[in-house]
Nucleic acid binder design. Structure first.
Lengths: 232, 232
DNA sequence: CATGCGGGCATCGTATACGATCTCAGATCC
DNA sequence: GGATCTGAGATCGTATACGATGCCCGCATG
């Protein structure tokens, strides 16, 4: 839990030097999430320790933490590698996200300020633009920003952590998903707008929840087409 | 993630000796969950290492893992203690559980066998009995068993992990919650039966989801009365 | 040529050691 | 008397060292 908090602490301490294991964690985390290390990549303790100019002990801790988050797999006497994400895991994660995002947004339903909605809408318009410019990378990144903008308003920190975890796992995969389905992307933008409309109208939270959930569930196809290019 | 799997692996390896860090993890985990170590308890690395006849290194790893699960808080240069659980965290966890249990059961809706329902019902009847015998400890334990029996049928492993995590956090608290509200407990048993009825009737998954969610959300009061005995 | 068997090498798992940091009690100063 | 300083003890953080384990490759054998 508390990834956001943990990182905030580490940086918030300003003057206090972050521990080495924290540095190792952040480096590895970022490289996994941004795709520098792809799924299956072998994480050798010694090598990482040498690169970061530290011994294996803090590196091990960092890797154990990443393991707990599901970003790496670790086998006794064998070693660690970046976790693979198969179709089933991908699907389960997406499905989970559909439920918990729906939950978060429905909990936040009465709490959105005009500013929240305006900012989300601005992001969505930038998505539309990046779609027109056929910039899938930016589109994908804005998409996450849009969703986070909505779910971050939820006051439930535990749900927030679950959402974080899901995004992290998907990020690794999204990395290799530059090609996407324009039609679906366009539909996403419209669905986003519809969701914002529901929020502005003060619609029933449950209805908003279902809209968010349905939107999320409609998305996987775009990715799965990429994962199994032969299947179309 | 994959707590259940991790533990299963460790034990499934039968002949292979589990690593020391694994042993440390299991011991600490169990003691935290079963309440031997209550919230706030200070976990001193050296002491634990001596008790388990190992050095601090594997103990540190175990504690970091527990930290990632939210069972332990860890401050640099200060040390680790069993995580406190305040009213807000408790509420957020309960609320999250209400959503994800609803999700799991609705996903499992079409998959329950007669045996699944029968076993769940048997557990529920034992709950009724333990209520009559005024045995809150057993009641609480059966309650978790009942809920798990329903959610375990869900095919989504990610949601399963989220549910696991929630239960673990609540377990620490439940420990100190021997007194409960009999009326609410009785209502729980009836709600359980109603949920089983919906499942048997092949009701709309969404309706089942809402029933599960509402049932879960009704429960906190019983605990909160205990946490703030002065508030009634 | 296929297959089974060492043996060396890479890597992991953990113990030990020691400097760094925090806590807390007691002394000192206003 | 209360506040601040200081030093000792406790505990943490990490480096280093070394035994344990698994993997891979070459060699012998059928």
């Amino acid at each position: 839990m508390s990834e956001r908090r943990a990182r905030a602490d580490a940086e918030g301490g300003s003057t206090a030097a972050p521990s080495k294991s924290q540095r190792a964690y952040e480096l590895l985390h970022d490289r996994i999430v941004d795709g520098t290390y792809s799924p299956g990549y072998r994480l050798v303790l010694d090598a990482i320790g040498r690169e970061l100019d530290m011994s294996v002990v803090p590196v091990r801790e960092a890797i154990r933490r990443l393991e707990a988050e599901g970003l790496v797999t670790f086998e006794r006497n064998i070693g660690a590698r970046v976790a693979e994400i198969d179709e089933l895991q991908y699907h389960d994660t997406m499905e989970t996200l559909s439920f918990v995002e729906g939950a978060a947004v429905s909990l936040a339903a009465g709490l959105y300020s005009k500013r929240d909605v305006d900012e989300a809408r601005a992001i969505n318009e930038r998505m539309r633009a990046s779609l027109a410019a056929f910039d899938p990378v930016q589109f994908t990144s804005l998409n996450e920003a849009f969703h986070r903008r909505l779910t971050d308003v939820s006051p439930n920190a535990v749900i927030g952590d679950v959402i974080d975890t899901c995004w992290k796992r998907l990020a690794r995969l999204r990395q290799s998903t530059f090609s996407f389905v324009p039609n679906r992307a366009l539909a996403s933008v419209d669905e986003h707008e519809a969701i914002l409309g529901l929020i502005e109208d003060g619609a029933d939270p449950r209805r908003i929840e279902l809209a968010v959930r349905a939107h999320r569930l409609a998305t996987p196809d775009a990715y799965l087409q990429r994962i199994h290019p032969s299947d179309h």
